[in-house]
């Protein structure tokens, strides 16, 4: 009969909720009990340095272009030796959606995501991070990676000194 199965269904619902009432809550009590995020968790963004201690960022604007909410802005500049760097570099974390596209776009591994998710403040202007706030002293992920050992020919090293390069050939010696 319809009514019997209906009543059974309702009582079944009551049983399920009672069982859940007696179960341990899954709540994590946040400020006291912090959950440890995975290493690749995407939160606060940093600018890393290469193993020699130099800034990795070459101010190529790729991260800024990739950012879907346009929250990265910078000004490119060039050192005496021709190496590019960002004169200023700004990320507005109040707009950032932590999608990680900037870190994917970066050719030098300079911009990276860290698992530090506790960056809330009372004043929204405190969420605008300048280069000093972003730049860290370590290399972050890919610790051994140094962009200029693969590229930057003629800027930081003479021709042919890069890792995957062979010595330049003297064209005059190429006789038939």
């Amino acid at each position: 009969m319809q009514i019997v199965s209906d009543i059974q269904a309702i009582l079944g619902g009551f049983r399920v909720t009672l069982a859940h009432m007696l179960r341990r809550p899954v709540t994590i009590q946040y400020p006291e009990q912090k959950r440890i995020p995975y290493p690749r968790f995407r939160a606060r963004i940093v600018l890393t340095r290469d193993p020699d201690g130099g800034e990795r960022c070459v101010a190529c604007y790729l991260c800024s272009a990739a950012c879907p909410v346009d929250c990265i802005s910078m000004q490119a500049d060039e050192r005496e030796d021709g190496r590019r760097y960002a004169a200023w570099f700004r990320i507005n974390f109040s707009r950032c959606i932590f999608c990680g596209l900037c870190a994917e776009a970066c050719p030098t591994m300079a911009i990276q995501m860290t698992p530090d998710y506790e960056i809330c403040t009372r004043d929204i202007m405190d969420l605008v991070y300048e280069k000093e706030d972003l730049l860290i002293d370590g290399c972050g992920k890919d610790a051994s990676y140094n962009f200029y050992s693969h590229a930057g020919i003629g800027v930081t090293q003479p021709r042919g000194a890069g890792l995957e390069e062979s010595k330049p050939v003297d064209v005059r010696s190429l006789m038939p």
Binding site: H20, M21, L22, P25, V26
Partner: peptide
């Protein structure tokens, strides 16, 4: 409280 327990909360 009881509704929270039903929903596995505290």
């Amino acid at each position: 409280k009881v509704l929270a327990w039903v929903q596995d909360r505290k």
